[in-house]
Amino acid sequence: MTWEWDVIWKYFPRLLEGAWLTMELVLISGLIGIALAIPLALMRASKLPWIKALPFTYIYFFRGTPLLVQIFLVYYGASQFEVVRESFLWPVLKQPYWCAIIAFSLNTAAYSAELFRSAIQAIPVGEIEAAEAMGMSKNVQIRRIIMPRAFGIALPAYGNEVILMLKGSALASTITLLDLTGMARTIIARTYTPLEMFLAAGVVYLAISALIIALFRFMEYRFNRYQYYHHADTPADLDPQLRDPHIDQK
């Protein structure tokens, strides 16, 4: 077997171009995904069955089907209908770039909504009762207490979701986009060096994952800073009524 290092060096700049598109896709669909996931999660956490039903169906569909089907439904499926092709949406749906973003956003929104829902339900009841006792309205509670707390609780799991999005973004290459995988495939069609180019692409993917992991570690440290405070030991002779069980546990 001949191993061609020079092919890797020669085409590496083009791979990096692809990597840039990959990161752009992940970032933009990640942000849109969060924006969609928050209302979905709040609806899912609701106690009213008719409010819960809609996000449930949405989440069930997007978590139960392959991302490849979803991306093909948006890219090829939408164009089946004359109405869509005549409408103001077509200039957007015509472009594979936006189709990929739409599919990835809808997909990650479904997964993130479940993460946020379980985070919302993991907030200690006492904290919400305390907010109520302070006279906060439901809206203020959501903005000041529920969202920030849920975000902190969901952060580590959300970091995993972003890594999964990164891996899923490789599917952009199936609708002609030249993301990292698409770029590698296009180069290989000419150079016939699949092992070399896919290895190089793999290394770039691992580097991006490492970057994402580091970013989330840092954010978690900043966001959940209270967990990292070192509490002074409670004096042994403290009046039992003043003891805080949370601190004693640590």
Binding site: R85, K94, P96, T174, T186, R190
Partner: peptide
């Protein structure tokens, strides 16, 4: 890619049928 890659926007498909679909929709 080799002969027109510098002036046209090249789109490569996994199957010929997908390319036909996009020709039909005007992409």
């Amino acid at each position: 890619e080799d002969n027109l890659g510098d002036v046209v926007n090249v789109k490569l498909y996994d199957t010929q049928d997908n390319a036909y679909l996009d020709l039909a929709t005007g992409r």
